[in-house]
Amino acid sequence: MKILLIEDEPELRKSIKQYLHQEGYLVESAADFIKASEKAFDYDYSCILIDITLPKGNGLDIVRQLKQRNSKAGIIIISAKNSSDDKITGLDLGADDYLAKPFDLAELNSRIKALIRRRNFDGNKAIVINEITIVPEERAVTVNNQPVILTAREYDLLLFFITNKSRVVSKNAIAEHLWGDESDQMDSHDFIYVHLRNLRKKLSDKGCVDYIQTIYGIGYSFKAS
């Protein structure tokens, strides 16, 4: 699966590229507006990540160009300007998602996966990990073919873990994923633990292996072969 990353900051480009590469994506990148619009025209990507402020042009114009030629690529805007105007303009132009800098790479990964899933590129609507099956369209989870009733937060937490499978996910990244901007004001991660405990219990009640490992000091990791 190919992803085009349009970002002018070399260091950020490098680390995003590295993270997504580890996720198994083929990542192409462009550092300015001209190169970006060339690449966006030349190839078909599953997903294009676009920074708004670019040398030699505005990222929103690339969104316009892509929409004009009916590109099927999913578009995620990544911007340093967390402005509702930019967000609305971007989404109105046809971008699928908007992520404000600074973001967590795990969050970016989960947005890309959610987008690709929605566009159904791999033709398979369910996510299956050993005994766990998730149907994102219905927000339904089954373990060993028995339905598991999860709260909205527990479901989001499980999906976030599975999306970032085998990755170390920090508590801050989880808080940001579950509560968004509101997590800025939270000074404790106790409530993550409460949701996690409930999730673990509901899964193990149906005979699920505990895949969620606690990583000392940092957070958690969903480890499944």
Binding site: E9, E11, L12, S15, I16, Q18, Y19, Q22, A80, K81, N82, A100, K101, P102, F103, D104, L105, A106, R167, V168, S170, A173, I215, Y216, G217, I218, G219
Partner: peptide
Amino acid sequence: QTPLAIAKANLSLLMQSSNLKEEEM
């Protein structure tokens, strides 16, 4: 915002390292 994003991204990558000591974590 951009330097913060760079720091955050690199930190995420560093966290994935498998041979970290408790103190480093």
